[in-house]
Nucleic acid binder design. Structure first.
Length: 474
RNA sequence: CGGGAAGUAGCGCAGCUCGGCAGCGCACGUGCUUUGGGAGCACGAGGUCGGGGGUUCAAAUCCCCCCUUCCCGACCA
């Protein structure tokens, strides 16, 4: 039951955590997964945080169908080229071959923009600020639970605007106010927001923005994307409106999404050799109380005190683990594996002394509190743990971020695959391709906050026009 | 789709080379003893050996085909 060590075999560790913490298991069809209650509860917490922010930034939820006529996909050239290889097609239904095949949506721009063409006549109909929570299907080469499954859950926002400036502002607002904020404040995971290079752009997008997180094996994970689509989809699906001065124009678009991949991100950003470490913001159980006893009398008295403490923890997701069939040591390990931030141990010795023993998951340390103080101290401790998880992850990222001076340094660092490398780039797709050919690493993003880029491209020596963040990626 | 490994009880595996009663550990059921870091003993239940075909008196084992999973690539949220 012991987990593989992260340092020995990170993929094996990841798979064991997912399985042993009962988050998910793979299902019958290739690349599909059953999300089990512990994993789904984490997803629900993430959903809630993301959905709150989507609503707070002025969007409404709606729902489009899973099945889309195949011809719709053909209408946007780059989009079909990008997605066709991984689209699942329904050819038969009702015992007959369909006259027109249907695809299982890999994303919904096509059906949504085709529909928007009926909804938009005038600039007064804009903007459309809609989001949906949905499942999508992508027939990827190599599935990995949560990170890349054939079917996954996500939200996808699709907005239509009167001007390009407005659509771009929307794209960036969602990136920062919804995604980066959720990553930092809820997942407690530091991310680098940035722009994708043309090679890494979403098919059909004019500009793709991303947030990139660093996993504890040194690889980067694209944790969320927000796309400025310009007028590409409006032109492909004929979404026109009459503007303020009477002329007919195409609408401007954004689309953006985060998925169940975020669960994998949390596992690999915070997890340690004992298993998951969850911030309280997404923990299905924030505090677990483990009673310790020998006799039935002790059991009764310990549980009475334990339940009293639980009742006193107002607004905290607390569980008294009163299962009689497991011993305390087993429960300690199990809740550590599942990532519960705080464990309270309570036995006859504690009760005699008027104390509880409090173990924190982030540091694996124990402290002693008086029973009376527990109600007041739990919430501050949860906050402290959440802050510490973020700090630890940020320190890890800083320790694993290099600023190489020469191409040899960049190449060696990227080949080792131990983190981010930040360097000047001349913007040429050929230099980007050279790095990928030499190291298998990619430009994860181009920094947003850099103004005038100084210095030279680390590959070509020509003047740099971008500051690029390179890494091996999932 | 290319390279590698593997499918045997819920999980992890041995058995296969050299064909001959389907096993081990954990988990599971019952009972007793236990309980402050993954308890002990006893008894017990659980199997189309990934699927199909072939060879043979006899196949988990040998041969052929197929499927699936994992790892490494190319693709990707």
């Amino acid at each position: 039951m012991a987990l593989p060590k992260q340092a020995d075999d990170f993929p094996a560790w990841y798979q064991a955590v997912v399985r042993d913490a009962q988050m998910a298991e793979s299902s019958l069809a290739r690349g599909t997964m059953v999300i089990k209650p512990w994993g789904y509860a984490i997803w629900e917490a993430i959903q809630r945080a993301v959905d709150d922010r989507i609503k707070a930034t002025g969007h409404e939820n709606l729902y489009f169908p899973t099945l889309i006529p195949e011809r719709l996909l053909q209408q946007e050239a780059e989009h079909v080229e990008g997605f066709a290889p991984e689209v699942a097609v329904v050819t038969h239904a009702g015992g007959e071959q369909l006259a027109e095949p249907l695809i299982l949506r890999p994303t919904s721009e096509t059906i949504i923009w085709d529909t928007y063409s009926k909804w938009v006549q005038s600039y007064r109909d804009l903007p459309l600020l809609y989001n949906q929570w949905a499942n999508v299907f992508r027939w990827e080469m190599r599935p990995r639970v949560f990170l890349r499954t054939t079917e996954f859950l996500w939200q996808e926002g699709h907005t239509a605007h009167e001007t390009g400036e407005e659509a771009m502002a929307e794209t960036l607002r969602v990136l920062h106010e919804v995604y980066v904020d959720t990553a930092r404040e809820v997942l407690r995971m530091p991310v680098i927001p940035g722009r994708k290079s043309a090679a890494e752009r979403f098919p059909g997008a004019v500009e793709t923005f991303t947030m990139e997180a660093l996993m504890r094996d040194g690889k980067a994970l694209q944790a969320g994307t927000s796309h400025y689509l310009g007028q590409n989809f409006a032109q492909a699906y004929d979404v026109t409106f009459q503007g303020r001065t009477g002329e007919v124009e195409y609408a401007y678009a954004s689309s953006w999404g985060v998925s169940t991949r975020l669960i994998g991100a949390v596992i690999m950003a915070h997890g340690d050799d004992k298993g998951l470490r969850l911030p309280s913001t997404i923990a299905p159980v924030q505090v677990v109380i483990v009673p310790i006893y020998k006799t039935d009398d002790e059991r009764a008295s310990v549980l009475e005190v334990a339940n009293g403490i639980a009742r006193g923890l107002d607004g905290v997701k607390v569980k008294v683990d009163d299962r009689d069939e497991y011993r305390p040591g087993y429960k300690f390990n199990e809740w550590e594996l599942k990532g519960v931030p705080v464990r309270i141990e309570l036995g006859p010795r504690d009760i005699t002394a008027g104390n509880v023993t409090v173990a924190r998951r982030d540091l694996l340390t124990k402290e002693t509190w008086t029973i009376e103080s527990a109600a007041a101290r739990v919430r501050p401790l949860l906050d402290e743990i959440d802050t510490n998880l973020y700090t630890q992850a940020l320190e890890f990222r800083e320790e694993h971020t290099a600023r190489p001076e020469t191409y040899e340094e960049l190449r060696d660092f990227l080949k080792a695959g131990t983190g981010f490398a930040i360097a000047g780039w001349d913007g040429d797709p050929e230099t980007e391709a050279k790095v990928k050919a030499d190291t298998k690493a990619t430009i994860r993003c181009l920094r947003l906050e850099t103004g005038g880029v100084e210095g030279t491209c680390i590959v070509s020596g020509k003047p740099a026009v971008e500051e690029a963040v390179f890494a091996q990626a999932y």
